[in-house]
């Protein structure tokens, strides 16, 4: 069971690391004020890094102080509902890669039915109609009317 307390620890850690990394990189750019006015390139990023580190530390302290309160707040991450979300995320990443190879329309032909199936739609006719109509609408609006280019298959 994941509760907010654990999440906060993770968030504090990640934010602190990120903030320190930003500091390190900004130092290379130069932090501080320039002679004739203006600030060096690394100053503003260093400030943002500083805010992150500061907020991370305060969050850590607050979580430690209010341990009970945060333990009771549940962060829903493990239910079957969430697993479906992770599956969808995976499908999306695969789709991104497919876009490069197969182009928008062919990948869409795979993606939309896949998504609808994951969401529980089993009616094949409905799936087919939605896919065709959606892709046709995209074709009409983006290719015909707006003339924007959409990803194309690598064999074209």
């Amino acid at each position: 069971m994941v509760n907010m307390k654990k999440c906060n620890y993770v968030i504090s850690a990640v934010a602190a690391v990120l903030g320190v990394a930003i500091w390190a990189l900004s130092a290379g750019l130069g932090i501080g004020f320039k002679e004739e006015g203006g600030i060096s390139a690394g100053t503003w990023p260093a400030i943002t890094g500083g805010i992150m580190v500061g907020a991370a530390l305060i969050l850590l302290v607050m979580t430690l102080v209010n341990r009970k309160k945060y333990e009771e707040m549940e962060v829903v991450l493990g239910l079957p509902a969430n697993r479906r979300v992770y599956l969808v995320m995976g499908i999306m990443v695969v789709y991104c890669l497919l876009l490069n190879v197969l182009g928008l329309y062919i990948s869409g032909l795979i993606l939309i039915p896949a998504l609808m199936w994951v969401l529980g739609e089993r009616n094949k006719k409905k799936t087919a109609i939605v896919t065709v109509v959606a892709l046709a609408a995209i074709y009409v609006i983006f290719s015909l009317i707006l003339g924007t280019k959409l990803p194309e298959p690598f064999f074209m």
């Binding site: 999306m92 789709y95 928008l104 993606l111 969401l119 409905k126 959606a134 995209i138 959409l150």
Partner: peptide
């Protein structure tokens, strides 16, 4: 939702790509 969600996903991809190709 089974229709809306895939359509919106497609929209996000197409919209993002048409911004700067």
């Amino acid at each position: 939702k089974e229709i809306l969600i895939p359509v919106i996903f497609m929209m996000t991809f197409v919209g993002t790509y048409s911004y700067n190709h």
